[in-house]
Simulated assay, not measured.
Amino acid sequence: MQRTIAALVASFGLLALGAPSPAPAQGASPAIAEDFKPSSLNQPGQDYPQVNSQGYVRFRVTAPQAQSVKATLGLGGQGGTVLHKADDGTWVGTTSGPLDEGFHYYHLEIDGGVFNDPGTRNFYGSTRWESGIEVPAHDADFYALKDVPHGNVQQILFPSPSTGTQKRAFVYTPPGYDANQSARYPVLYLQHGWGEDETAWSTQGHANLIMDNLIAEKKTRPFIIVMTYGMTNVIRPGEPGGLAKFDIKPFQAVLLDELIPYVDSHFRTLADSDHRAMAGLSMGGMETKTITTANPDKFGYVGLFSGGSFSPEDVANAPGFRDEVKLAFVSYGSRELDRRAVAPPGAPSFDPVANHEALKASGFNSVFYVSPNTAHEFLSWRRSLREFAPLLFRD
């Protein structure tokens, strides 16, 4: 597994969850439309940052004594957007191009120090609380807050003898769970990415709203989602070796020996592999692949969102996987696949499209999804969950 992780990191830059994803240039840049509006993620009453109809972002920061201010969100070789000081002591700057639709992390660098933007909300990502901004997506309706029956996201604390602590998870129960005390439900264990935590999928990812809307439209079977912290083997930012040193064993013990039994004993689950799935984004996808190939009797459905793929060799080398697993779902943002066309020198070859086609040709139920015009970012993964959920537990 460590070789697999190292290969993915070297080839595809899976650590860069905080990196902005610019839309590629299409000829000459258009004039910037002056129709900027406050981001939907701004703190109450805050006018900046702002986003315009083209996807440009404009920042305004009050720092009258500062000598330099930069936002790490933006394009170009400067690694962000340099802000310029106005006569009133504020610093203003606009990204040099439009950003991809969806959610982006960023922070401010003021005279060399790292600060969050006081104008917007904070989200845990990149191993720290980061500022966040949302570039409105044309297809945002599938994760919009609508007048439909809503499920519930609750925090649970469960004992973890393997780590000597009480650990936290968030559990989504679908609409009607509390009203119908006789109904039992399948469960999806859904993992976050590197540098994120168990809050990511219900906050940045809007997993609960995606499920509420799919259920209201009768596009998916209602099921429970469990989200917990996957970085049990903590690696500090900047530590040599990084993600390649991640050890799956502590998290696997927490998931299989502690969390799943707790959920099955405290929620009305259908506690068998036919009604249990696991999926994750980026690092969470790599965790998912490792755990499910080693324990195919535990999970009947598997999803990797920008976190590797399944080849015929993977399936052949995992005894029982072909017989036990009913679906292997793999997804990427289209810009991720574009970038993977050129691997760094010495990096191993990796073609998730070819892997999918070969696995499907072998008779295995493999599904591959590409999120249009997105990269390694949450809109790719929101769309992936939307596509994955209706395929689950179709008995």
Rank of each mutant, 00 (worst) to 15 (best):
G102S: 07
K249C: 04
Y105G: 00
G193F: 06
P175S: 11
D338A: 14
G55H: 12
S11A: 15
S160T: 12
G151P: 10
P222A: 07
V114N: 06
R386P: 02
A253I: 12
V263D: 12
R394W: 01
I215S: 01
T199W: 06
V153T: 12
M286S: 08
F305T: 05
Q50S: 12
V263Y: 04
A7L: 00
E130S: 14
D111V: 10
A63F: 06
A361K: 14
F393V: 02
F123I: 07
A71F: 09
A216K: 02
F251A: 07
E377N: 11
W381P: 01
L83H: 08
W91C: 09
P30S: 06
D351S: 05
P296N: 06
T292S: 15
A23S: 15
L75Y: 10
D314Q: 04
P49V: 03
F267A: 08
S265D: 13
I291F: 05
V57S: 10
Y48R: 04
P250W: 03
T127Y: 13
V92C: 06
L391C: 06
P240F: 10
S306F: 08
G333P: 01
A343I: 09
A347N: 03
M286L: 15
E101V: 12
L392T: 06
Q181E: 13
K326V: 05
V325R: 03
S96E: 11
D274W: 02
A361C: 08
F321N: 00
P159T: 12
E287N: 15
P38Q: 10
S311I: 07
R268Q: 09
G119P: 12
G132Y: 10
F368T: 01
P296Y: 10
G284S: 08
D87R: 13
K245F: 04
H150Q: 15
G55C: 07
H275K: 09
E130L: 12
G307S: 01
P222D: 02
L337W: 06
D297E: 15
D395Y: 08
T94I: 14
S202G: 11
R128K: 14
W91Y: 11
Y262D: 02
V254R: 03
K37D: 03
L8A: 14
A277Y: 00
G205V: 09
Q191P: 01
S349V: 14
D147H: 14
V171Q: 08
G285L: 03
S384A: 14
S40P: 01
A66W: 07
P372S: 00
T220F: 10
P20K: 05
S40A: 14
A279V: 09
A343W: 00
Q65L: 13
S371L: 02
N42V: 04
A179W: 01
N373H: 13
P250T: 01
G193C: 03
Y189W: 12
S311D: 07
G284R: 08
L214N: 04
T173H: 09
P159E: 07
V82C: 05
N295E: 09
S306M: 03
G132C: 13
G79T: 07
A244P: 03
F378I: 10
T81I: 11
R128I: 09
S182M: 09
A244S: 14
S362H: 02
E109T: 11
A25Q: 00
Q50V: 03
T269R: 02
A16Q: 12
R383S: 11
